[in-house]
Design a protein around this nucleic acid. Structure first.
Length: 357
DNA sequence: TACACGTGGGG
DNA sequence: TCCCCAAGTGT
């Protein structure tokens, strides 16, 4: 085995992480779910979601049989909800077309929705012992520094070079440990800021280290200005405290999740109520709360909440597909965006506050 | 090929 | 308060 993998594996035996939830009772399903959850998401964030998800869906057949609303419910707050929808679709395909058996090759895995090149390799390596190279954020950082790879990883040329290095270092033996090891090194030693080079098993041949330029690799992506957006969020609440939610289109932001109606800032409460067959005469009171900012990767959204209280006894808007009265006291198992969950959690408190003022 | 897609932590 | 970005994929 070559120097790189050999040094890394020796370090892993002593310092690697071996007690994460998905490292117990290893099978392809558990590894798959963990890898999807871990896409663009840190380990400490994933752990409680993974535990809840596995308790509810112990096997791929359980997941395949579930309602998508319940899957999104367990994903609420984790972000990138297309991951949950793809996970559900892939589970159904595995259960129905593959007799519940996971593919064991990177090629077959990558054919499933939500599984790309790196995730396919991770599952094949960790769960099936197949030699396959991964390239996640940790590995990119380790390799960019070790080989002093110029350019930022968003550039095609840079990405290609990093993949080539990843393939070249991947050993035949102990592939599962190696895969975990290189991620662990990036996560705990070769960190984005202030890497602990004195504890690094690869420091002796690290090109960035020898140039005393670890901070220059990988190169930072050019910063872009984040657009500012604003929207009103209408919290239409009946006398029982239930709040009207609508299901968002599956494509786009918060796809498939349920949120209070989000409309342009110049939208009036009366016109939104009209959309849901609520007459103006049924509105008991409304109140505009101070806006708060929700920050996304690509833009800022200033959310202006508008609370609309309906008269007691006034008939609810008709139940139709895509419309739901959400009772915070007895929550339905549906997916909620983080801002929606936050507003619904404090709904009764906020309403009492407004009544006083 | 860029861009969209969430949320929370750290500097 | 603001910026970067983390076990990436799909279009």
């Amino acid at each position: 085995m070559e120097w790189f993998a050999s040094r890394l594996l020796r370090w892993f035996d002593e310092h690697g992480r071996k007690d994460l939830p998905w490292q117990r009772d290893i099978d392809a399903y558990r590894v798959w779910v963990s890898e999807i959850m871990l896409q663009q998401t840190q380990v400490t964030t994933v752990i409680p979601y993974f535990e809840r998800f596995m308790a509810r869906f112990p096997t791929v057949v359980d997941l395949a049989a579930a309602d998508i609303d319940e899957v999104l419910h367990l994903w609420s707050g984790l972000g990138y909800y297309a991951r949950a929808r793809n996970l559900h679709r892939a589970a159904q395909r595995v259960a129905e077309e593959l007799n519940g058996q996971f593919p064991a090759t990177p090629e077959a895995l990558e054919a499933l929705p939500g599984i790309g090149r790196s995730t396919a390799a991770a599952i094949a390596a960790i769960a099936c012992g197949k030699r396959a190279a991964i390239l996640d954020g940790n590995v990119k950082r380790v390799l960019a520094r070790f080989h002093a790879v110029p350019g930022h990883p968003g550039q095609t040329q840079t990405l290609k070079a990093l993949w080539a290095h990843a393939e070249a270092h991947t050993p035949e033996d102990r592939i599962a440990h190696y895969t975990q090891a290189i991620m662990d090194l990036g996560a705990t030693v070769c960190t984005r800021v202030r890497p602990a080079c004195t504890r690094c098993p690869l420091a002796g041949r690290c090109e960035a280290r020898s140039r005393d330029a670890t901070a220059s690799f990988p190169e930072r992506r050019p910063a872009k200005a984040k657009p500012e957006r604003a929207a009103r969020l209408f919290l239409i609440v009946d006398s029982a405290g239930a709040c009207l939610l609508e299901q968002r289109p599956v494509d786009g932001l918060w796809g498939g999740l349920w949120t209070p109606p989000e409309r342009p800032v110049d939208t009036q409460a009366v016109s939104v109520c009209e959309e849901f067959s609520i007459n103006e005469t049924q509105i008991a009171a409304f109140h505009q709360a101070p806006p708060f900012r929700h920050t996304f990767t690509h833009f800022h959204l200033d959310i202006h909440p508008v609370y609309v209280r309906l008269d007691p006894g006034s008939p609810r808007a008709m139940d139709r597909p895509g419309v739901l009265w959400f009772a915070p006291a007895t929550p339905q198992a549906v997916g909620l965006s983080a801002p929606a969950a936050k507003l619904l959690a404090s709904l009764s408190t906020d309403l009492q506050e407004f009544q006083r003022t």
